[in-house]
Simulated scan of single mutants.
Amino acid sequence: MRLAIIDLGTNTFHLLIAEIFGNRFELLYKTNVPVKLGEGRINDNIIIPAAFERGINTLKDFSTTISSFDVDKVKATATSAVRSAENGSDFVKQAKSQAGIEIDTITGEEEAELIYEGVKLSGAIQGKSLIIDIGGGSVEFILCDVEKLIWKKSYNIGAARLMQQHYKSDPISDDDKNAILNHIQNQLQDLFEICEIHQPDKLIGSAGAFETFAELIIQKRKLDIDISTIKTFEFNFDEYISTTIELIAASHATRLNMPGMIPLRVDMIVMATLITNYVLGRLKINQLALSTYDLKMGILATAMEA
């Protein structure tokens, strides 16, 4: 079966086309577009007109690509920006009428489940772990071990939400930083309680910002690693911490010029850094890994099991 997967994230729309042969697959095509659907008013639960138009135009382009690959099935999944927006249902209707793409808007719990399936497929889960997926609209946490998913939850503390609410300085000021950390602390109480019971010893970052963290380190150390072709990457913890200290202290212009930085993440990476480092510190975790497999690979994994 030839399957096209569309992941409509708050920042980025992804298209992946794969051929499935029983319990294995071959990747035929992969692309992503920085649509920035959550731009401007994500905390007001509105997709602004410019972002709405960018999203529909991107889906039209995806539809053209999908047609050229003669796929058997299309699975399009929308997450935080669409599910929380007052005009999210309008976007879903327009996607169908203008681009011919039927979108399934999933809950945060369903999103976390698919992220787990994707990370599991990568082989990154070696012991008791906490998976984190930092999106623009929401952040998913999944507590798991090699055999099972133990606990999962989605929180509306995504990078775009935090930026629009609290990020007013460049470089980020202590006041802005403290406002963000207080907000994170208040939101994640139940996460810390469940982790106190289960004691995960590793944090696994699902794609996104963690690919950028890895890319920054790869470029700095001139490692012969291509992020687009690997499933996992193990961070040296001290190296990760020193990289994130640089990111937080840097201005927008300095971050933009860092080898390995992509323009879409130049500011959102600061939010991702604050979230990740707070969780690492609070849970006393000093092992960190990247899984390049995320939600869209979870959809693929689910299709292979069907």
Rank of each mutant, 00 (worst) to 15 (best):
I142M: 07
Q187R: 13
S154E: 01
I225K: 00
G118L: 12
I17P: 01
F52D: 01
Y293T: 03
D201T: 09
A81T: 01
I132R: 11
L121K: 14
T302P: 02
I172Y: 09
I142C: 09
S206L: 00
E109K: 14
I248M: 12
L162C: 13
N87P: 14
F213C: 01
K148H: 07
K168V: 12
L203P: 02
R265E: 11
S80H: 12
M268Y: 06
T229E: 14
T243F: 08
A112V: 02
T273N: 09
D70I: 10
L300K: 02
E234V: 08
I217D: 09
L114Y: 12
K231T: 03
D267H: 11
A78Q: 05
D201H: 09
R41L: 15
T10M: 11
L188C: 08
K202F: 07
I245Y: 13
I106K: 07
E19W: 04
E19K: 05
L203Q: 00
T79F: 11
R54K: 08
A85V: 00
D224R: 07
V71P: 00
I218K: 06
D44E: 15
V270W: 01
S89E: 14
H166R: 13
L28P: 01
L121R: 11
D176V: 02
A99S: 05
G38P: 10
P259C: 08
F210G: 04
T77K: 13
D44I: 07
K93S: 15
I204H: 00
D104H: 14
T77N: 10
M271D: 12
I47Q: 06
F91N: 01
A95V: 07
I131W: 03
D226M: 09
T79M: 12
A179K: 15
D104M: 12
G281A: 13
I150P: 06
C144T: 15
A95Q: 11
F21R: 13
L15I: 05
K177Y: 07
D72R: 10
S242R: 04
V92Y: 07
T58Q: 02
P200Q: 04
L188S: 08
A207W: 00
N87L: 11
Q287R: 12
R282E: 15
V279T: 08
L295V: 04
I197Q: 10
